[in-house]
Design a protein around this nucleic acid. Structure first.
Lengths: 216, 216
DNA sequence: GCCGCGTACTTACCGGGTAAAGGTTGGGAG
DNA sequence: CTCCCAACCTTTACCCGGTAAGTACGCGGC
C-alpha cells in the first residue's frame, strides 16, 4: 500500500505522468527505496479502475503534450486528505522475518540461539554503521526539503537498527537466564534463584542508546 | 520469504503435513501472525517444485496414514542450516509506509507535518500500550518454549513501537527547528532562542549538485 | 438426525514487486 | 554530419505472498 498512497499524495500536489511519479517519489525519499517503473503504471491503472485517478484531460501548453498525465478525481483528492489525517495502523504488525526466526529458534531443538543472535547482531550493527556513515556524509543539495526528508528517513533506519540490536541483546539475556534454570516438570512454584546466577557469561555489550527498536 | 523459511525450519525438525505446519507455526510464534492455510500449501508446492521438499515416502504406522506428510530433501536440509547460520539481511531495508509518509509530508505543500506526527503518535502509543498490556496478561501455558518465544515476540513489538514513538518525537523536533529559519513562510515565529548548541546549519546553497547525487 | 467443531486440503483471485523489452529525443564524439 | 549513448517514457509477462471460500470427514452432543 505504500506506493499506492504515495502516488495519490504526489498527484494531489500536481498532475504527473508515470515516469515523473517514479522520479519524484525517489527524490522525495532520498533514493532509499527505488521503485520499479512497472509498478507505477500498474498501480496507476488500478487507481484509474477504482475511480481515484483519471488520465489528464487538458494538456498543458507549457510542456510536452505527447506524454499522458494523470489527475486525481474528487474521490482521489478525498482519499489523499484521509491518508494525511489517518495514522498508519500499528495494530496487527506485519510479519518480521527476524522475529519469526528467533521465535522458531528458541523452540527448535539443535539450534543454538546464541549463534543466531550473534550472527544477526553483527549484520545489524553493520547496517547501523552504514547508515550512520551515510548520515555523516550526507551532501547538502540545493533542495532543502528533500535534504530534510532524506535525513529523516536515515534517522528512521538508524533508530530501527539500534532497536534491533537492543532487542537482540535482550533476547540473549533472556535465553541465557532461561537456560540456567530449565524446569522439566510442572509444580514448582519456583526457584528462589532469580538473582544470583550471574555466573559466567561475560558478554560484551553493544552500545545502543535508550529505548529503541523498530522493524516491521 | 518468512513463511517459506519457517516451513523449511519446521520440516527440518520433523516431517509434517500441511495443517500441522500451520498449527505449529502459529503455536511457536505465539499466535501473533496467523497464517492462511492456503499459503502453506502453495508455498510447500513451490518448495517441492524447487526440490527442497518431497511428499513423505514412508508412512508412519503410529499415525493416520491417509494424510500426506512432507520431508526435506538433502538440498532442503542444507537450506535450513544455511538459514540458521545466515543473518537476515538489513542492507536494503523494506519500504515502511510511515517513513514514506513523513518523507512526503515534509516536502509537500499544504500538509502540516505536526498534525501527521501527532495523529501517528497517538496510534503508535495505543499499539504500545496494547502490547504492554498483553505482556502483563501473558498466560503461562504448559509449554515453556512457546511461552518464551511468544514473550520475545511481544518484546520485539514493544521495542519497535517505542522506537517509532521516539522517532516521531525526533521528527517533530527537527521539523520545528527547521521551520524556525526558513524563508518567507506564514507563521513567523521569530525565536531568537534557537541558541544553545551551535546555531547549526550555516550552510545552504551549494553549487550544482554533485553528479550522481546520492546513491547506495 | 443434525449441529457444530476440529482436522485436512484445494482453488480462484488479488495486489505488490521485478525483469525485460520496447520507443522516442537530444546532445555530444568522432 | 552522423551515429551512438543516455535520459526519458511506456508496456507486458511473470512470480510470489496473502486472502477468501469451499470441500470433506469424523466425532461428540442435544
Amino acid at each position: 500500500m505504500s506506493i499506492r498512497h504515495g502516488i495519490i499524495a504526489l498527484l494531489a500536489e500536481q498532475d504527473m505522468h508515470g515516469y515523473q511519479l517514479k522520479v519524484e517519489f525517489e527524490r522525495r525519499t532520498g533514493g532509499t527505496w527505488p521503485v520499479n517503473i512497472g509498478q507505477i503504471y500498474t498501480t496507476v491503472q488500478r487507481l484509474v479502475r477504482d475511480g481515484l485517478v483519471l488520465p489528464a484531460p487538458g494538456e498543458r501548453s507549457d510542456d510536452r503534450a505527447d506524454v499522458e498525465r494523470f489527475t486525481l478525481t474528487d474521490a482521489g483528492r478525498a482519499q489523499a486528505t484521509v491518508w494525511w489525517s489517518t495514522p498508519v495502523e500499528r495494530g496487527a504488525p506485519a510479519r518480521d522475518e527476524l522475529a519469526i526466526k528467533l521465535a522458531l529458534a528458541v523452540t527448535a531443538p539443535g539450534v543454538d540461539v546464541r549463534d543466531v543472535v550473534q550472527a544477526q547482531r553483527t549484520e545489524s550493527m553493520r547496517a547501523l554503521h552504514d547508515f550512520t556513515r551515510l548520515k555523516a556524509a550526507q551532501p547538502q543539495t540545493d533542495d532543502l526539503g528533500a535534504d530534510l526528508a532524506w535525513s529523516l528517513v536515515l534517522d528512521h533506519l538508524v533508530f530501527d537498527a539500534e532497536a534491533e540490536v537492543r532487542w537482540l541483546d535482550h533476547v540473549e539475556a533472556r535465553v541465557a537466564r532461561a537456560s540456567l534454570h530449565p524446569r522439566p516438570s510442572p509444580r514448582p512454584t519456583d526457584d528462589p534463584a532469580a538473582g544470583g546466577a550471574g555466573g559466567g557469561r561475560a558478554r560484551r555489550r553493544s552500545g545502543a542508546p535508550p529505548p529503541g527498536g523498530r522493524r516491521r
